[in-house]
Amino acid sequence: MTLFRHRLFWPLALTGAVLVSLVLFPSLWQMVLAFLDGAAGGRGHFNFFSTLSRTSLIGGMALSVFLSFRAGLINIGGEGQLVIGGLVAALVGIYLPGPGVLVGVVSLLAAMLAGGLWALLAGFFERVLSVPLLVGSLLLNYPASFIASYLVSHPLRDVNSGIAQSHRIAHGAYLPRFSGTILDYGVLLMAAFGIAIIVVDRSRVFGYRARMQGISPEFARASGFPVTRMYFQILFGSGAIAGAVGFVAVFGIAHRYVDGMLVIPLYAWTGVVAVLLARVNPLWVLPAAFLFAALQTGAAGLEHSAGIPREMAQVVQGVIILFLAAGGQRFLQNTTGEGA
């Protein structure tokens, strides 16, 4: 009985209410169909692949966030790391001559390096200048965006296009797509990152240490873990994954850097939300990212057919986080900031 009350009552009640209202209000049913169509329908399931494509970006950012959150580092500067990565990828893609594959690989590595270094910058601010990572990493988002915005609005601008965006990258360097779809191979890269993170988290000494440090940094120090090295390794890795996401967005989807393309859709913040929904468990990070990707593409579909603004998706995300936060579990230890 108590199990029923605590665990099953609300889910059942909610499902029941949804079913009843679907029967009573046929237009609601239409909206659900529109949502599902937006997330997974279209000709040849076009929208499903577009959801997957979005998953690779959100999921990548979620993995980046996961890496640092797992070790108790509150790096919420994913946006800046993503932007810098995307920008550097575009620069290399545009200006590096050579065979397409080589340009692609170099761009990926350069983007990861740039994203990683940008994250290390926040680490430098914390470790050397005592600015809490939470604030430092966040503040660095803004200069990153402004640098990118300046570069593609002025010196690197594709003037003929009429909007603030860079030139196209070399055609041969485009990330290949699965035939007949808009889904590029970036999703494979992110899946590989996801699997690697699960394996390291479970089976490597490094993953063990990071996990323990996330539970208690003092314990990690007193146990003799190489905490300083881990701190910078994890930050760099976190930033590098964000940088790789920037690469995928440029080489797989836009094929150039468009001002605001990585910031306005809130990829980084959605990644944070996905990690929180997954309760900082590596197995659930990518599924949670898929859920939010579907929420966004579904909302776009809903906007198309029912006229409901797609920003609804963000509202839903915000509400989900609030309820997750109140779920009682503390996700984040080591929260810096004095008043806390």
């Binding site: 996990r211 323990m212 539970i215 208690s216 003092e218 314990f219 007193a222």
Partner: peptide, 8 residues
């Protein structure tokens, strides 16, 4: 906090 990782 120091002696144990309590949640582990």
């Amino acid at each position: 906090r120091v002696g144990l990782a309590d949640a582990a």
